[in-house]
Write a protein that binds this DNA or RNA. Sequence first.
DNA 1: CAATATATTCAACGCTTGTTGAATTTACAA
DNA 2: TTGTAAATTCAACAAGCGTTGAATATATTG
Lengths: 215, 215
Amino acid sequence: MNKSKKGEKRERILDVAEELFALHGYDGVTMRQVSTGAGVDVALANYHFGKKLDLFYAVFNRRADYLANTRKELLIANQSEAGDTPQSLEQVIEAFLLPLKLAQESGDPGWKNYMALLAYVMTSATWNSVLMKDNFDKFVGEFIDALKLIFPKASDQDIHWCYHYVSGALALTLAQTGRIDRLSGGKCLSSDFDAAYDRMIPFVAAGFRAICGEE
Amino acid sequence: MNKSKKGEKRERILDVAEELFALHGYDGVTMRQVSTGAGVDVALANYHFGKKLDLFYAVFNRRADYLANTRKELLIANQSEAGDTPQSLEQVIEAFLLPLKLAQESGDPGWKNYMALLAYVMTSATWNSVLMKDNFDKFVGEFIDALKLIFPKASDQDIHWCYHYVSGALALTLAQTGRIDRLSGGKCLSSDFDAAYDRMIPFVAAGFRAICGEE
DNA sequence: CAATATATTCAACGCTTGTTGAATTTACAA
DNA sequence: TTGTAAATTCAACAAGCGTTGAATATATTG
C-alpha cells in the first residue's frame, strides 16, 4: 500500500487551500472544496488548523515570513555594501521586488498561487488591516526609511504616495488576471513575471525621481 | 404614511448591493444582507434583477457606461483640440484618470463604493475576463492607440506593460484599503483622491518616458 | 369606480455551509 | 507486542443559503 509520509495530508490541505483562496477569495471557498481537493475528510482541516479563518491565516503566514525576511536581508546587504554613501534608488526598489521574482523562478507552483493570494489581500480593505499589518508593515517601514535617505528633501506624503503606486503596480502584476494578455492580443503574458519585473524597476524609479526630486 | 416614489426600492437595492459587494466581494454578500440593508423583502431583489449573479452585473453595469463614455469624450476632445500635432502624454493620461476624480468629487457616496468595486473586479481573474472585457476593453484599446501615436518607436510590449502599471496604481488607489493611512501614520489618507491623482499623472508620465523613449 | 398591471411580501423548499463528538485507524514508544 | 498518542474518518447537527410560487398590497389605466 502507498505509505504516506507524516504531515503530508496537512501540507496538501494548505496547498489546495492556497490555490482556492487565491482563485476565489475567502468567502468563495468552502471547507469541503478544500478537503475534496486534498483528498481528505472535511473534518481533518478542522483538526489541523481549527476554524476556516485560522486555515486562511495559516495559508497566508506560511510564506509571508520568508518573503519579508528575504526582502530585509537584501536591503541590509545593499546598505552595508554601499558603506556610508546612500545606495541607489534602483537597488532599493530591487530589494523590494527581487524576492518575488526569485520565488516565481523557483518553479514551485505554490508560489504563483501565493502571489495571487497576496494581491487579493493587498487590495482588500478587510484583510489588509489584519494580515499586511502583522506580516509586512514593519519591513515596509524600513523600505520607506531607505527611500527617505535617497530623497532627503522630499515630503513624507510624496514618498508614501509613490510607494503606493509601486505597491499597486506590483499587486496587479501578482494577481495575474490575464487582462494584459487580452488587451495586447497575446503579445504580453500575465505569467511573464520577468517582463513585468524588468520594466517595473526603471518605470517606478523614473516616477520616484519625478515626484520626489533629484537625489 | 410615507409615500415612496416609484423605483425607489429598486434603486435602494442597487445602492446597498454596491456597497456590500465592494466591501466583501461577490461571495461575501448574501441576498438577505442586501435586502435587509435596503429594508425590503428578500424576494424583491429577485423580482427586479433575477439571480444573485444578475444583480451583481446590474450593479457593475450601472455606472460603467458613464465612466467609459466620459473617458472617451475627453480623449476625443483632446485630439481635436490638438489638431494634427499629437496631444501631450499628460493629456492622454488625464483622459484616463480625470473622470474618476470628477466622479469622486460629485459627492455621491455611491461612486466611492463603485470605485472599490471596480478595483475588486480589476484585480480578480474571475470577474476581470467577464466584466472588464464587456465594459472597458474597447476604450482602453483607443487609449493605447493614443499612446502609440505619442511613442511611435516603442514596442507594443513596452506600452502595454506601462499601461498595466498605471492600471495597477489606479486600482489600489480606488480600493481605498486604508494601508497608506497606517503606513504614513495618518499623513496620507486613502480617501484623499486628489492627492493621489495629482501625483499619479507626473509619476506615470515619467515612467512612460523612461520605458517608451522620448516623444 | 372598476380592472388591470406592477410592486412587494409571505412562507417555504431543498441544499450547502462550518463545525463537532465519537469512532476508527495509523504511527510510535516501551 | 502492547499501550498510548496522533491522525483520520464517520455521521450528524443547527443555521444559513439562493430561489420560488402564491398571496397581498399598491399604482396605473380605462
